[in-house]
């Protein structure tokens, strides 16, 4: 039984992946099985030899994320009732309003966190998922970096939702002022959650596999 020393860095010539060895590795515990095995005998998780299911998950969550991102932008995020009037603001509308009021920094934060990042994430995940099956101009390293960034930044997209949640919890002053979350708040939270799940579904090993196929 050959011993693969995976602990020694810089020894990648000796490393081969399970796929290359003609085996199926459990993505959860690392045990390898002969191809065709349905589930891991050690930890019980399902085996996915060519990452097809993983990729399907990525696309499915991404689609769901994009779907709920639409109402998040169409419907109002915040419903503000004050003594004088009531107003509803959407994400884009709020950012534009802030910009008009001269709060450029805040407007920029809202714009980046609520529009640029989610859309960038959609694009990044979509690009990564698409690049798995074919040659890519971007190096493996850069694709890994992109994947890490997407995973890291995902949680920060919830900043809008947090603001809405905190505001509506704090500002309940009876008839004087009230802040209620709109439909968009729920949609946006769902969208962020779906995108995160999409990023998590992406099995990074597939990037290696695609890379190895290139060689």
């Amino acid at each position: 039984m050959p011993v693969y020393n995976m602990e020694i860095p810089g020894n990648d010539a000796a490393l081969i992946s399970a796929q290359r060895a003609g085996l199926v590795a459990c993505s959860h515990c690392g045990r390898v099985y002969p191809p065709g095995t349905e589930s891991c005998g050690r930890c019980g998780s399902g085996l996915d030899p060519d990452g097809r299911k993983s990729l399907q998950g990525v696309w499915a969550w991404l689609a769901a994320g994009i779907l709920v991102y639409l109402p998040a932008n169409i419907y109002p995020m915040l419903r503000t009732n004050t003594l004088l009037d009531s107003s509803e603001s959407t994400i884009v509308g709020g950012a534009i309003e802030l910009f008009h009021h001269g709060a450029y920094a805040v407007a920029a934060i809202v714009f980046v966190a609520s529009i640029l990042i989610p859309i960038g994430k959609f694009l990044a995940i979509g690009y990564l998922a698409m690049s798995l099956g074919r040659r890519s101009r971007m190096s493996v390293h850069h694709r890994h970096m992109l994947f890490e960034v997407v995973e890291f930044i995902g949680r920060w997209s919830m900043i809008d939702v947090f603001v809405v949640a905190i505001l509506s919890a704090l500002v309940h002053l009876g008839s004087v002022a009230n802040v209620n979350p709109g439909i968009a708040a729920v949609s946006f939270a769902l969208s962020v959650a779906f995108t995160m799940l999409s990023a998590q579904s992406l099995d990074p090993r597939l990037i290696w596999d695609a890379d190895e196929e290139d060689r």
Partner: peptide
């Protein structure tokens, strides 16, 4: 061959 995760976007839709 179809992942059950596809139910999620269908539901979302």
């Amino acid at each position: 061959r179809l992942s059950p995760v596809w139910l999620v976007p269908i539901l979302a839709l």
